[in-house]
Every structure is written in structure tokens, then in C-alpha cells.
């Protein structure tokens, strides 16, 4: 008897626990819940956190996230209006605002993501292909208005053709908004709200990228050549200057030397003239004697005439010659 009572009470407790467990459910802060009975939604969705109850066993709890969710598309290869192919990678934020409709239309998150892929990718394609590539890259006309920014550093700047610098009319942020505007109307059909679509990455496709690199490389090579030839030019300039100074110094020195010597020679001439003018014939006599002395040596052959005054006394002793 006693044993039977124990078994019954245990069974009752278990059933009671199961019923409680099945009847009550918790909605978390980050969730919202739709109750379905045999697949048919019952009542309004529970969007506020807290403890709620339902009909046990028969009613099923369908939980959906209430937070902001991410969507990240695959990069798309899109031609722009000026026929350049670029990869565009967009990212979006969305959330489930009508869980009932969400459940009815897309059932779960992964199929919602697939729908978003379709919608956002096509909107991105439409918007990007209707604009030039600069509209996607730039957000303002800052560089067009301040072209000096292109050469912020004199030697590390890339030459840019003017056509690349055409002003933009729309800009990246507005393009993002345009994409968002295009996708927003689709969202209510899925019970979701799209908060934001952003262009996350854009890049040239590989072939174009390679060409861009080639252009950058050739531009750099040109810059390097320019710098090298500047160096050579500077060297030539210095060498020229050096030659000039050298010539200047040497000719200046030559000039000074000639002047000094000339003046000295002139002085000497004046001094000699002044002295010798006292008696030119005596000077001639002295100089001649001196010359005799200096020019006679053993190789000299002297031929003297007996008429010569020196031999006067050889011929005749004449007291009065």
C-alpha cells in the first residue's frame, strides 16, 4: 500500500513537471517567438523578453533573432558606365521585424540570406553599372578641388592624367544610399527591415589590376630616370662651374703675372735708360768690352788685321799715331 502511494506520487510529480516545462517558455532579450499549433500560427508573436505560457505539447515554439543581423554578399564583377570592370563587395545589416511574416515567407535565416543575395546583388549591379568608376571610388571632390594634394610628397607622387580626375556628381555614400533605397521596398514582403547597405570593397578585376600595376611601375621608372638625370645634370652644372672658376683663377693669375712682370720690365728699362743716357758712347764702349770678354773662348778664332790699332807698334813705333 505504502509502496503504491510512493509510485503514484512520483508519477504525478513527473507529469506535473513535464506539463510545466511544456507550458512555460522563456523569450530571451535577443529573441522573438512565434507559437504554432500543428503548423498554424497562434496569436501574436512574442517580441518582448519574459516568461510566457502556451498549450503544452500541442503548441510549438519558433524562435527568431531580434538583433541586427549581418549579410555579406559575394564580390560581384560589374562593369561601370565607363566600361571598367570592378569587383564590388557589399555588406548589409538587417533584422526581422515581423517574425510571423518572416516565418511564412522565407521560413528561416539561410533562405532569407539567399533572398537578400538576389535583391541586393541586383540592386548593386543596377546602381554601379549606371555610374562611372570614380563615383564609386570617391565620395567628394576634395582631390579635384585641391589638385596639389596629388603631389603631397614631391617624389612619391604618381602622375595622374587630368581625365582621371573628373569631378563626381554622386559619390560613394550616395551610391550606397541608392542601393539601399532600391532594396528597401522588397523587405516588408519578408517581414524584415534592411537598415544599411554599404559598399565594403571595390577593386579592379585581375586583368585591369595588372595593367594598373604596369602603369604604376612605368610611372615609377620614369620618376627614377628623372631623378637620375637630375643628378647627372647637377653634376654637369657643378663641373661647368668648376671649369669656369678654374679658367677664371688661372687667367686672372696669368694676367697678374704679366702685369707685374711688364711693370718691372718697364721700370728696369727706365732705370737703365736714365743711367746710360749720361754717356751713350761710353756705355757702348763698356758693353762692347764686356761682350768681348764674355764671348771669347778657346774655340774662337780671331783674325786680326795688322792695320789694327793694337798692332800699331808692331809695324812702327810712332809716338804720334
Amino acid at each position: 500500500m505504502n509502496r503504491l502511494l510512493l509510485i503514484v506520487s512520483l508519477l504525478c510529480l513527473t507529469v506535473l513537471f513535464l506539463v510545466f516545462n511544456e507550458a512555460f517558455f522563456v523569450v530571451n532579450e535577443a529573441e522573438q517567438v512565434v507559437i504554432t499549433r500543428f503548423g498554424e500560427p497562434i496569436g501574436k508573436p512574442f517580441t518582448n523578453a519574459g516568461l510566457y505560457w502556451k498549450f503544452p505539447v500541442l503548441d510549438a515554439v519558433n524562435r527568431f533573432d531580434k538583433r541586427i543581423l549581418e549579410w555579406d554578399g559575394d564580390p560581384n564583377q560589374i562593369p561601370t558606365l565607363d566600361k571598367r570592370y570592378i569587383w564590388v563587395d557589399t555588406t548589409a545589416r538587417w533584422r526581422i521585424v515581423d517574425p510571423l511574416k518572416f516565418m511564412q515567407s522565407v521560413r528561416n535565416e539561410s533562405s532569407a540570406q539567399a533572398r537578400l543575395d538576389d535583391i541586393i546583388d541586383s540592386a548593386t549591379r543596377d546602381v554601379i553599372s549606371n555610374h562611372k568608376v570614380v563615383e564609386v571610388v570617391r565620395n567628394s571632390n576634395r582631390l579635384v578641388d585641391n589638385p596639389e594634394m596629388l603631389v603631397a610628397d614631391e617624389e612619391d607622387s604618381m602622375d595622374v592624367s587630368r581625365s582621371e580626375l573628373e569631378p563626381i556628381k554622386v559619390g560613394r555614400e550616395q551610391l550606397s544610399r541608392n542601393i539601399l533605397e532600391r532594396v528597401i521596398p522588397y523587405a516588408p514582403d519578408f517581414g524584415i527591415e534592411i537598415l544599411d547597405v554599404r559598399i565594403q570593397r571595390i577593386n579592379y578585376i585581375e586583368e585591369v589590376q595588372k595593367k594598373v600595376y604596369d602603369r604604376m611601375i612605368s610611372e615609377r621608372k620614369r620618376a627614377a630616370e628623372k631623378i637620375r638625370s637630375e643628378g647627372q645634370g647637377k653634376r654637369a652644372e657643378i663641373e661647368g662651374q668648376m671649369q669656369k672658376e678654374l679658367q677664371d683663377i688661372q687667367s686672372e693669375a696669368y694676367k697678374s703675372v704679366q702685369e707685374i712682370k711688364g711693370k718691372a720690365d718697364a721700370d728696369a728699362i727706365r732705370i737703365y735708360a736714365q743711367a746710360y743716357n749720361l754717356d751713350p758712347s761710353f756705355y757702348a764702349f763698356l758693353k762692347t768690352l764686356e761682350t768681348y770678354r764674355e764671348t771669347m773662348n778657346k774655340d774662337t778664332t780671331l783674325i786680326l788685321s795688322t792695320d789694327h790699332e793694337f798692332f800699331n807698334y808692331l809695324n812702327t813705333l810712332n809716338v804720334n799715331p
Binding site: R293, T301, L302, L304, S305, T306
Partner: peptide
């Protein structure tokens, strides 16, 4: 001068 000269001819 005369002694220094190599040869002296008198004619």
C-alpha cells in the same frame, strides 16, 4: 781676351 781665344791670326 786674346789668350782665351783658340787661334789668333794676324794678317
Amino acid at each position: 781676351v786674346l789668350p782665351k781665344a783658340g787661334k789668333v791670326y794676324v794678317f
